[in-house]
């Protein structure tokens, strides 16, 4: 029977804090990059111009249908052999996760925008709004409301995908867990602790999305 010993994990609190900081950093980076690029690609997917539609669709299909882990390894190991500069673990991981999230959130944005009644475009254009004004003032505010549950889901996914950065030895929670496990021979406690930490971060976030969903429903 295994004798649980979390003392060896708590002894490495500093390492775990550094890991948590790394996880939050890559999460924040990928959330902003992934969702804003996703919005741009999603707008491209709603375009009637094939010069916007086709590149956006190719992007979505490519990054949706290749594993994030492979992309991260590719950016880290392969890209520097093709380009004349080095690329760090954070940049490689952030690129992979952001591009993948952009592809998935692009579909959320496209669906949200296309779910808005065409009459809203009519109303906006009839008072002289251009495409950008109508999108910014009329369509997106309504679409974002509908997309909130799906987008918060994306955020949770991004948070968990951050562990993939450990594949290129970026200092985040899982990477620190691996380190603690290998130094103290306590993989059971180390990985249990990592899982619990993720739960502690994410559970309130998920509760918040439920709250948001209820509020948005109430406003309709």
């Amino acid at each position: 029977m295994h004798k649980w010993d979390f003392a060896s994990v708590f002894a490495n609190t500093d390492a775990l804090l550094a890991g948590a900081a790394g996880t939050l950093r890559i999460f924040a980076l990928c959330l902003v990059l992934g969702l804003s690029l996703g919005l741009i690609v999603g707008l491209g997917r709603t375009s009637r111009s094939r010069w916007l539609y086709w590149p956006a669709s190719a992007f979505v299909e490519f990054f949706r249908n290749t594993p994030v882990l492979v992309q991260i390894l590719w950016f880290y190991f392969a890209l520097p052999m093709l380009l004349p500069f080095q690329i760090g673990p954070l940049a490689a991981a952030a690129l992979g996760i952001s591009l993948n999230s952009a592809a998935f959130s692009a579909e959320i944005f496209r669906g949200g925008i296309q779910s808005i009644d065409p009459g809203q475009w009519d109303g906006a254009r009839a008072i002289g709004m251009g495409w950008g004004q109508a999108m910014r003032r009329i369509i997106l505010p309504q679409a974002l409301k509908r997309m909130t549950p799906a987008l918060t889901n994306r955020a949770i996914e991004i948070f968990k995908m951050s562990t993939l950065a450990s594949a290129v030895a970026y200092v985040e929670l899982l990477q620190q867990g691996k380190l603690i496990a290998s130094l103290n021979f306590n993989p059971i406690e180390a990985y249990t602790a990592i899982a619990v930490i993720f739960f502690v971060f994410l559970w309130p976030l998920v509760q918040m999305t439920y709250f948001l969903e209820r509020r948005l429903k109430r406003d309709e």
Binding site: D117, G119, Q120, D122, G123, A124, A126, I138, P141, Q142, K145
Partner: peptide, 12 residues
């Protein structure tokens, strides 16, 4: 100016 059958007011 244009007025529509379905009003097309901005609900937000």
């Amino acid at each position: 100016g244009m007025v529509f059958q379905q009003f097309n007011l901005f609900p937000h």
